[in-house]
Every structure is written in C-alpha cells, then in structure tokens.
Simulated scan of single mutants.
Amino acid sequence: MKTRILLLLLALVTIPCFVQAAQREEPTIYVIKQGDTLWGISERFIKDPNYWPNMWSNNSQVTNPHFIYPGQKVRVFPDRLEFVPREQPVAVTQKAVPAPAAEEMREVAAEKSYTVFGSEGFILENGVKPAGMVIGIQNDRILAGDDDIVYTDIGSSQGARGGEKYSIFRKDSTVTHPVTNEVMGTKIIPLGTLQLTDLERNSSRAVVARSSKEISPGSYLLPYKGSSRREVSLKMSTRELKGYILDSYSGISIIAAGDIVYIDLGSAQGAEVGNILYIVRDVVLDQRYAEGRIDKLPQELLGALVILETGKKVATALVVKSIDAIYKGDRLVSMTK
C-alpha cells in the first residue's frame, strides 16, 4: 500500500513538470506588420539583433532580409524564431500573442543602419580628375604623416586659398569590368587630409592635418567635404537593379561579410545609398545529363551587400552577409517594392 501511495505522489509531482515543459516549447505566433524588419524582430523577441541571418538562411521563403511582408507569421520560441510556411496553417493548439504583447507589437521595429567612416575608398570614374597632387615632401622625404609639410600643385590660379583643406588619396589600380572589360576607373584609397598654408600661382605648401596611412608624392587630392562619418539606413530599391562586383578594397580574391567592394551600379542606373542587393552566381549546367531538356538552373545565393556611396556608374558597398565564398565578377540583383 505504501508503495502505491509513493508512486501516486511521484506521478502527481512529475505530470505538471511535463506539462510545463511542453508549454515552454509551445511557441507564440507573431504576425508581421507594416515596417517590421528581421533585425527589429530578432532584437525584440530574443534580444539579439544579429540573429537575423539565421532566419534568412533557414527560411527559403524570405528572399529579402530587409523587406518582409505584412501577414507573414513567425513562431516565437525562447531561443529561436521560425517562419510559418505560407501553405501551413497555424495549429489551433498554439497560443495567440497575449493582449499586452500584441499592443506592444504595434510599435514599428527600427530599421538597421550601418556606420560609414570615410575610409572605404571608391572608384574615381573615367573623366573625373583630382583637384591636384602631392608633388613633394619637405626635406626630400618619401613618406609623410601627421603634421609633416608637403607640397602640392594646387595654386592661386585655381582659385585656392590658404587654410583650405583637401582629402588625400592613394592611386591604387585601374578597375576593369569583369564581363565587358570596360575600364570603369581607378580605385583610390583614403590616406588623410591636409591644409594649405602658403600659395604660389601654381603650387602651395601644406601641412598634413590627419593621416590614416603613409602619404607619398603622387597622392591624389580632392576637395575636403567635412567629416565622412555618417549613418546609412537601409532602403528598398525603387527600380530593378542588376550588376556585378568589380573589385574589393583589399584586392583579395575571396570576399566575405565585412569586406568593402566596388560595383558597377551608380546613380545613372537608379542605385541609391542604403539599397540592399543580393549576391548570386549562375549554376553551370552539365548538358550530358540534362539532355537538352533544361537550359537554366536556379541561381546560387551567396550573400548580400548594402550600398554606402554612389558615383555615376559605380558605387562603394559593404558586404553584410556571406553564406559562401564571394568573388569579383559575381552577379548582383535587387528586389523592388
């Protein structure tokens, strides 16, 4: 008899534990609202705004991590988020979002933004010339840094005045299109800033106000535009964009998340700062097995980038996600509103 009583008490104690465990695994359902983003949802529910790449890569129905559709449903677990497939109805046993939480969700999730520091470099396009060059360094030195005296070919005949500032760039390499072989321009890398002190008609003396890298004769000069640090918020493209990756800041062959790249899309094509583009690659089909029945395979999704600065026909961009190795010549596509 005592044994039966003990077994009964044990059962009464353990059953609620199983019920609570099951309830903990039972997700709540959140319905996407206008303005929501994966970053905002990740930060709101699991306090990790950087969780969004997992949601993107694990959910094939989400082709654009910035633009998700009102009415989509998300299963909210304590440690993860899952999209409910469109063809799968929400089970009636799942809990609805409690009224207080639903009220809180009316607030639109903040959009993700990226900080531009001005050190990303860009492609100086054909036909665009620098304002001048560093033509020498005091005492015939070959390298200059902070507070050093340099000489430029900018003078009063160009309308320059003492005290004016110029940004200093290194001429890096000529950039050609990976498909058409068209020369797109010259990659230039920021080195610092200088300030003119004394001017002649066609030359000037200047002091290096700030340097991030060593400065040498031959460095390009462009008018100083003030602090280059700014925030770039993501925005949907208003038109369809298709292009290619031209080169990377570092020049390395393999490109990954966090790398700066240069692309063949600029303001002339409708590209804007903040546009997010998807990096894709065509899959080569072996016709020996297709027997001529198939001419094209779905593209391979490699990652995503956001445009930081645009020129007329080119732009500087940051790779924000990579799920495979990315190379110069990989294709870019956008999703429009």
Rank of each mutant, 00 (worst) to 15 (best):
W56C: 00
S113G: 08
T28A: 08
R86I: 15
G163Q: 04
V76K: 03
G121A: 00
N54W: 10
D295P: 07
R4N: 12
P89L: 03
L308W: 14
E164T: 07
R230E: 08
E182F: 06
Y51R: 00
Y51T: 02
W39L: 00
N54A: 12
T336D: 11
A102V: 04
W39K: 02
T316R: 01
L38G: 00
L194G: 02
Q158R: 05
L12P: 07
T115I: 08
E240K: 11
V62H: 05
A11Q: 09
N202V: 10
P53E: 01
V76C: 05
F83S: 00
P100Q: 08
R75Q: 13
L265T: 04
I168M: 06
G218M: 04
H177S: 00
I263R: 01
L6W: 14
P27W: 01
R86W: 15
G162S: 12
V283G: 04
G258H: 05
R281C: 08
V31Y: 13
V207Y: 14
A109V: 13
A317P: 11
L332C: 02
T197Y: 09
K112F: 07
Q287W: 10
D147W: 13
K73M: 08
K33W: 06
V179L: 12
V273M: 08
S219P: 10
E26V: 02
D140I: 06
K313G: 14
I68Q: 05
L8D: 07
R44T: 09
E164M: 12
R281L: 09
I32Q: 01
G311W: 06
S167H: 10
T336S: 13
L7I: 07
Y166M: 03
K313M: 13
I252A: 12
